[in-house]
Design a protein around this nucleic acid. Sequence first.
DNA 1: TCCTTCCGTGACAATTCCGTCACTCTCCAC
DNA 2: GTGGAGAGTGACGGAATTGTCACGGAAGGA
Lengths: 234, 234
Amino acid sequence: MSRILVVDDEKDIVELVSLHLQREGHEVVSVGNGLAVLPMAVKTAPDLIVLDIMLPGIDGVQVHRRLRADTRTRHIPVIMLTARAQTNDRIAGLESGADDYLTKPFSPRELMLRIGAVLRRSQKVVMLAEQRIGEFLLDRKNMSLSISGKLVELTITELKLITTLMANPDVIHSRSELLSAVWGYADDTHSRTLDTHIKRLRDKLGDHGRHIGTLRRQGYLFQSTVQELADADA
Amino acid sequence: MSRILVVDDEKDIVELVSLHLQREGHEVVSVGNGLAVLPMAVKTAPDLIVLDIMLPGIDGVQVHRRLRADTRTRHIPVIMLTARAQTNDRIAGLESGADDYLTKPFSPRELMLRIGAVLRRSQKVVMLAEQRIGEFLLDRKNMSLSISGKLVELTITELKLITTLMANPDVIHSRSELLSAVWGYADDTHSRTLDTHIKRLRDKLGDHGRHIGTLRRQGYLFQSTVQELADADA
DNA sequence: TCCTTCCGTGACAATTCCGTCACTCTCCAC
DNA sequence: GTGGAGAGTGACGGAATTGTCACGGAAGGA
């Protein structure tokens, strides 16, 4: 499921944690030396780091600072392990901005639960590589739109526009919402820009342009179905 | 999990099947009238249709033909239910191109297994909405690339190019592969087009352009890590 | 019916984007 | 060291793209 880097100089701990993690389907990488953490994190790009605060040579808080200083590792969540439930360690762990921490001795079950919670928090958002609405097929991988298998050549602006509309079909997208999503405009009050692009999009879609509906004073929407009477293509 | 349209005029069958499907986490829609299938399929866009071949008024094979004739429902897999294990029905079911079929009386367990198999076959491909490699963050939703949180303005061609490279980091992408993926060219032998776009991309990436490596006579690749000595940004 | 508001449309000019070409540079085999 | 093949680079012109504007027209309330 996820790749987890375990940092501890006590081999017993590493093995115990690894065993439990692997049992839950995770991939485990480990180092016992604080100085090796950053290079290893860069190399293996783990989804989470379990970091013992007590390490020979360089302590865990320092290691954590280094991880946070590097753009390549900055985003990786860290769970700290402190040797004892002392205030010093707790404060150090919190101050350096760990996502969670646990005091030794800890129960493997609790560690697993906390790891699960942190991973869930930083869960990756998945999206469909292909989105299909009726005869419309949006291919996000190739950044293209096809209708009934026929490729429609759209510019990037038009593609962003219809992608936004298709993300929530049959839902009204206000002008400001579209301006924001496609153009990044904060609040462009009056402008015919959106209208023009809607028209260009409709033109390129041909008959199927009827799927893009207008709601006066409200915005535009992608209609998954259109009136039967004009459904002359079937 | 999936939305499944069950078509049968016998309410007992519908309820039995629905119960089992819902137990497996599927959403069930049903109709008992053959003429209502197409409109319902268009309206609810199910992932699968379970279709009884014996229906009052219009028979299942006809319904299936209509589903196949409409671009909005053409892609939806269909499992046929035949009233008896007679050759006529079997042949009719196969001829009309059903994805699978089952003869009544059937065991709910077998139907569930076949439904699972068909759904797995037409499984949707999911992709990460955000792909991160080191400081590079590819946002497929907004079709943009940012490095260390800073947006890099790329043209559609450049974006496709780096998307292709980042799809398999540290793997060589041959010229023909890139030409094919980005430009759709079948086999453009000599051309400096790719080189030029690589250069433009590297320029826009600034220092980080070093992540795009050249393998003489082989192609280009996205390197997840670059030489430390030049890593002056940390 | 009239009037106001909002959307549709065609035209246009500025800008961006893209493929190509000529030339230079680098790498590697001999 | 030399030569050749392949990659890098800068420039350029044509094409595509885009935002804006003015005007026409539809919708809906008064």
